[in-house]
């Protein structure tokens, strides 16, 4: 009985993997054996990193906001508390962008937050 391996399909499959591995370093883009591993890993990291990207950006916005509010004599922690008290619903992305592009309006937000915090501490006392 002759051996049938369906070479066209195998070739197609290997070609697909090698095409996906274009631009990889060294043999990872040239040899199917290593390209297969590289593309699988690549998809694995890409899937995971689509999720961590959201966390990473939030962390960056918070770091920037912390720098911005510290210039006004506040810490990020107090600022976040005050945002809630003042009922400001802007998210960290918008706030950090405001701090970079529109200093004046960011300053007015900080003032509002400070006012709200003072009101809160008075109420507690």
């Amino acid at each position: 009985m002759p051996r049938a391996t369906n070479a066209p399909a195998s070739r197609e499959r290997r070609k697909r993997v090698l095409d996906q591995a274009k631009g990889y370093r060294g043999r990872r883009s040239k040899l199917f054996r290593y390209a297969k591993d590289a593309t699988m890993k690549g998809k694995y990291w890409a899937y995971r990193d689509r999720k961590t990207r959201k966390r990473n950006f939030r962390m960056l916005w918070i770091q920037r906001l912390n720098a911005a509010v510290r210039a006004h004599g506040m810490t990020y922690s107090r600022f976040a508390e005050g945002l809630k008290v003042a009922g400001i619903l802007l998210d960290r992305k918008i706030l950090s962008d405001l701090a970079i592009t529109d200093e004046a309006s960011f300053k007015s937000i900080v003032e509002q937050v400070k006012g709200a915090l003072e009101g809160k501490s008075k109420k507690a006392a």
């Binding site: 960056l60 770091q63 720098a67 911005a68 950090s96 701090a99 970079i100």
Partner: peptide, 9 residues
């Protein structure tokens, strides 16, 4: 540059 608003990692 951690004290700047434009901090980029």
């Amino acid at each position: 540059g951690k004290e700047k608003v434009i901090y980029t990692p």
